[in-house]
Design a protein around this nucleic acid. Sequence first.
DNA 1: GCGACAG
DNA 2: ATCTTGTCGC
Length: 224
Amino acid sequence: MHIEYPSSETQAWALQETLATQVICEDNFDSISTIAGTDVAYDDATNQLVGAIVVLDASTLDIIETQVVTESVRFPYIPGLFSFRELPPLLSAFEQLTHKPDMIVCDGQGLAHPRRFGLACHLGVTLDIPTIGCGKTRLTGTHEALVETRGASAKLIDNEQIIGEVLRTQDNIKPVYVSVGHKVSLSTARDWILKLTPKYRLPETTRQADQQVNRALKALQAQG
DNA sequence: GCGACAG
DNA sequence: ATCTTGTCGC
């Protein structure tokens, strides 16, 4: 797969502004029978990234397929330019999939980004697949306090715009940051995150991908 | 200028 | 992201 790739911070910044105009913030899909989760981890010793995509049955949450890849780092981690680091291994893993998912939940922000183009938007626009951003911590935006019960939420605001939602997925547990990636509305994104978190703070999709990534990372470090 | 800053 | 001990809960 060929994608435009920046060779500098300035280029990356400009590319985000161009691609951000392609993001669709409304529901644009038929039915969702499979939903995937993604995660990426870094191996210090070899300076490589391990990326994983796990496809689940959207109704039973059973695992349908897993793909894991290991690649050299192409771009440093810079807040706001995060997707340029994680996108390559995720696209490689996606290519390997036999079962292309109907929707993807990313472990990072979507529109809840300084230029409204976080990882979830980048992956969604690149693959032209509906995506949801679900981050563990905040990148940008402010919000009101939310009560401690599962399902509680508050709008994430930045520059007087609603860029996402802070959502409590479990009672008395820190909330997650939900935002539109591509071809989904914020309310649809929120509904999916709640469905995917019947028991834990993070979506089952993300948890499965995280598990695969760490398994591969451990195997990598066991070699040398 | 200073702090904040997805993973 | 990763570095880390003990502690709490199922």
